[in-house]
């Protein structure tokens, strides 16, 4: 926030602190891209003018305290249950805009049933799914999205797919469900990717506002602390290893969503 500096009169703001974020410092590690994703969501909510009717549902995982950082009505779900909780909120308050913010353990392991059924019902909610291929908050254990061979504190020899199965591609899995109107995978690993991720988040919220069905943006993210890398190295590692396994792009764009895209 601008403090104590004079802004010349011919200077115009091009980036300002979003109203939909509180001023609290986040607890995220330095360089953690959760902060970027929070900011993108807040910017989209500001730009769509829906802050005063949006309700967020926080997960269990690193983003468990998301409600401290968003300047929105918020609740904290049990592990994996955010889509069910969001369903309850949206069904009794159809005029609110409801989104869940979930990590890979929350959404792709313990909460698999809830996300699949919420998507399949075409719940008018938006899910932001942060995939960093690891359990961050508990200290770096194998996630359902951990890559084959990836070393974690609970796969010390690297993920052995014969024992632990394969990483789940959630965007593809959800994309085949008829109730899902818009499903995409994005990454916040560089500036162009962050811009595209923001466009996707905006579209996902617009899909909800237009009542077209369930929308989800999977976002490839980093966990430099548990990967044992610097913040910058983590961006490069994700590009080199995650993006090839988790291809970026839309896995579901319903016809009505395509029409919506053309309107914009």
């Amino acid at each position: 926030m601008a403090t104590g500096q004079d802004i010349p009169p011919d200077m115009e703001p091009v980036y300002q602190y979003p109203e939909s974020l509180t001023s609290r410092f986040t607890h995220y590690c330095p360089g953690c891209t959760h902060g970027v994703i929070h900011r993108l969501i807040a910017e989209v909510i500001d730009e769509l003018g829906i802050r005063e009717r949006t309700v967020g549902v926080a997960p269990v995982g690193c983003a468990v305290l998301a409600y401290d950082y968003f300047n929105l009505d918020f609740c904290e779900a049990a592990h994996g249950r955010a889509p069910a909780m969001a369903t309850g909120i949206k069904r009794v308050s159809p005029d609110t805009v409801v989104f869940t913010y979930q990590g890979d353990g929350d959404l792709a392991a313990i909460g698999t049933a809830e996300i699949i059924h919420a998507a399949n019902r075409g719940e008018l909610i938006t899910t932001i799914f942060v995939n960093n291929a690891i359990y961050g908050m508990t200290g770096g254990q194998m996630a359902p999205t951990t890559l084959p061979g990836q070393v974690t504190t609970s796969s010390p020899g690297g993920r052995d797919v014969r024992m632990a199965g394969w990483p789940i591609k959630m965007a593809e899995l959800i994309g085949v469900l008829p109730g899902a109107a818009y499903v995409t995978r994005q990454a916040v690993l560089d500036v162009p990717g962050i811009r595209r991720a923001k466009q996707a988040i905006r579209l996902a919220f617009r899909v909800q506002l237009a009542g077209l069905g369930f929308s989800m943006v999977e976002i490839l993210s980093t966990c430099n602390t548990n990967w044992g890398l610097s913040p910058l190295e983590a961006l490069e590692w994700a590009k080199a290893h995650m993006v090839p396994y988790y291809p970026l792009g839309d896995t579901k764009v319903a016809d009505a969503v395509r029409a919506l895209m053309e309107q914009a």
Binding site: A78, R81, M85, T87, G88, I89, R91, V92, H117
Partner: peptide, 18 residues
């Protein structure tokens, strides 16, 4: 709902919405 687990969390959400 898809399960009792989901049911009670839908209840929790709707209750949070008042």
């Amino acid at each position: 709902a898809e399960s009792e687990v989901a049911s009670i969390n839908m209840v929790y959400g709707a209750a949070c919405a008042g």
